[in-house]
Amino acid sequence: MARSTITIAVLFASVVHVANARADGLARYEITGDGIATSLTGAPGDAVRGRTLALARTTTCILCHSGPFPEARFQGDLAPDLTGAGNRWTASQLRLRLVDASRFNPDTIMPSYYRNEGLVRVGRNFAEKPILSATEIEDIVAFLATLRD
């Protein structure tokens, strides 16, 4: 009896997980107002990993943004300074900015990190897939939310 209950619970959990994914593999999310209130992964991100990602040249954050990162050389000045980002924006707003910055400014040069349709000038390696995973988005959101004045 207990074994069948466990099997049913595992099957139910699998169905719920699949229901939260879109056909293209991206997590479902709902934009409410000026943000995405719910985590893309269903769990909070890791701020330490988020800091590492934000400072990595592969995510391009630091190429355009500057912030309280004394060890990072050649910080950008094309976009807002990230100092105090956690005071200026909620986690919900930060999440939407990372997922699809064009929702705020259609002419932005900031990439839509968690979108795979309607993009132009996409490199072959990024065609039909997001730049960042849902986990990476959540990690960066967790980190940016820690940046307080």
Rank of each mutant, 00 (worst) to 15 (best):
T90K: 03
V15S: 03
A27N: 12
T41H: 10
F12R: 01
R51T: 00
R103D: 04
L98D: 11
F104S: 11
A23T: 14
H17Q: 10
L78G: 04
T135V: 14
L132T: 11
T32L: 14
E138N: 11
D24R: 03
D149L: 08
L11E: 05
N87G: 08
C61L: 05
T52A: 15
E138G: 08
L96P: 14
A127D: 14
I137Y: 10
S39N: 12
E128D: 15
A54K: 07
A19C: 08
F126H: 10
L132G: 12
T83N: 13
I140G: 03
G25E: 09
G118Y: 04
A145H: 11
L40F: 00
R103T: 06
T108L: 00
P44Y: 11
R22I: 02
F143R: 04
A56G: 10
S14P: 01
N20H: 04
D100Y: 13
F74V: 11
S14V: 05
S4M: 15
P80D: 05
D46V: 04
G50H: 06
S102Q: 09
L78W: 03
S66A: 08
N116H: 01
T135W: 06
R148V: 12
F104P: 00
F143W: 02
I31D: 09
A19V: 01
Q75W: 05
L94G: 03
S4Y: 15
R22K: 13
L55A: 07
R115A: 08
L78A: 10
F12M: 10
D139R: 10
A145T: 07
I6C: 08
M110P: 00
G42I: 02
A134W: 00
L55W: 01
S4D: 15
E117R: 04
D34E: 12
A47K: 14
A9M: 11
